[in-house]
Computed example of a mutant assay.
Amino acid sequence: MSERHRYHLIDLVRFVAAFMVMVFHYTALGAADVMEGRKRLLAPMEVYPDLYPVTKYWFLGVELFFLISGFVILASALNRSALEFAISRGTRLYPTLWAAVLFTTAILFLFHGPYFNMSLVDFFANLTLLNDYARISDIDPVFWTLHMELQFYGCVFLLILCGVVQRVHWWLAAWMALTICYALFKQPFFMPWFLPPAYSAYFIAGCIFYLGGQQGYRLFHWFMLALCVLLSLYHVPAMVGQFIEVQHTADQWICMGIILSFYVFMFLISIGRLNIKTSSTIVLLGGLSYPLYLTHHMFGRYLIDLLAPVINAYLLLLGLTILALALAFIIYVAVDKRMAKSLRALLTKLLIRSEPEATAIANN
């Protein structure tokens, strides 16, 4: 996306979404099973009972992520070849993931000691993000969202490769039809192999918000957004059952309200009613969001288990937040800004012959 058309607020919103998920994990989870030989981890919801009634809804930062992803990825895909898109997305996704897998493995080894039993196959499978197809568990549960993202990237790559990505209305309509059929009839049964049925509405809506912002909203956009909202709300009871430990009658209604507010927020961004001027701080926060999301969970959870009995809970939460941000900053600077950028430039130079074009892609 060119600088003239860049939506700078998206960078800040991406960070807010990651921060929401981090606080949810630190304050609103239940007890967790760990490797054989260790006791169950403490339940953060019991360590922070005053925060839990509010932060238990902050798992919805993931849904906000998916809305942003649809918006940003469509913008990126429309003006790139399949190879350019693959290089851009792959070098954004994988180097930081590899750093996160290494860090999380070290944390598990540190805290589990002799009970640490992860195999090399599990480790290397996690580096590929294809481990779910081999029925190998994620090293860190938060990686589940990356499988959704990778499926989305893969489908967009194929659309570009087949030369039909510009026919956005057609393939979005087809994706919507598949999503509705799966929600109602669990067909086609193979849809989860290549697209996330329960979260497709958010990706589709993100794409529609980008199109509406660029082209002006027309009947097709409104109709698709209405279907996306209905599908998002349809899945709320299942999400509440999965993510909220202690549930109340109002939880589903509150989650629905939060999701609707996300839709309204993204609509206002798309039409330019909400915007901010870019700054180095906004760019930095946007850059921190991905490593923060990937690395905060396991080390924070184990430190809560270790330190909550002996340290003031709120000082601990503040310290964990600072540590998580510091770690995200280190990975952002060392991996994303250096290693990933160098890898992107190298792949672009090797695989794309046009030097001016290669320079532009490498810097994007």
Rank of each mutant, 00 (worst) to 15 (best):
E3S: 11
Y7Q: 11
Y7I: 08
H8N: 08
L9M: 15
I10Y: 02
L12R: 11
L12S: 10
M22P: 00
T27C: 03
A28R: 03
G30Y: 04
D33K: 14
K39I: 12
R40V: 09
E46A: 10
L51R: 01
L51W: 06
Y52C: 07
V54E: 02
L60N: 02
F65E: 04
L74W: 01
A77W: 01
A77M: 02
L78E: 14
N79I: 11
A82T: 08
A82L: 04
A86K: 15
R89A: 05
G90L: 06
R92Y: 14
R92V: 09
R92L: 12
W98G: 05
A100N: 05
F109D: 00
Y115F: 12
F116V: 14
S119H: 04
L120M: 12
D132N: 11
Y133F: 06
Y133V: 05
A134V: 03
I136S: 09
D140E: 05
F143A: 03
E149L: 13
L159I: 09
I160V: 09
I160N: 06
C162P: 06
G163C: 06
G163S: 05
V164R: 08
V165P: 03
Q166T: 08
A173Q: 05
A174M: 09
M176F: 08
M176A: 12
T179I: 06
C181E: 12
L184P: 03
Q187V: 12
F189L: 10
M191W: 06
F194S: 07
G206L: 07
F209D: 06
Y210F: 14
G213Y: 02
W222S: 04
V229Y: 01
L230P: 05
L233H: 09
P237S: 06
A238R: 13
M239W: 11
E245K: 12
E245Q: 11
Q247A: 02
Q247D: 03
Q247F: 01
Q252P: 07
W253A: 04
I254L: 08
C255H: 02
M256P: 05
I258Y: 00
I258R: 01
I259N: 10
L260M: 09
L260F: 06
L260I: 09
S261Q: 01
F262D: 01
V264E: 04
F267W: 09
F267G: 02
K277C: 07
T278G: 15
T281M: 14
T281S: 15
L288I: 05
S289E: 07
P291E: 07
Y293E: 05
Y293C: 02
H297E: 04
M298R: 02
M298N: 06
F299A: 14
Y302D: 07
A308N: 00
Y314G: 03
L315A: 07
L316Y: 07
G319N: 05
G319L: 00
T321W: 14
L327T: 13
L327S: 11
F329A: 10
F329Q: 08
Y332P: 04
V335Y: 12
D336N: 02
K337A: 11
M339F: 15
M339Q: 14
A340C: 05
A345G: 05
L346C: 04
T348I: 03
L350R: 15
I352H: 01
R353P: 00
E355V: 15
E357I: 01
T359V: 13
I361A: 08
A362Y: 07
A362K: 13
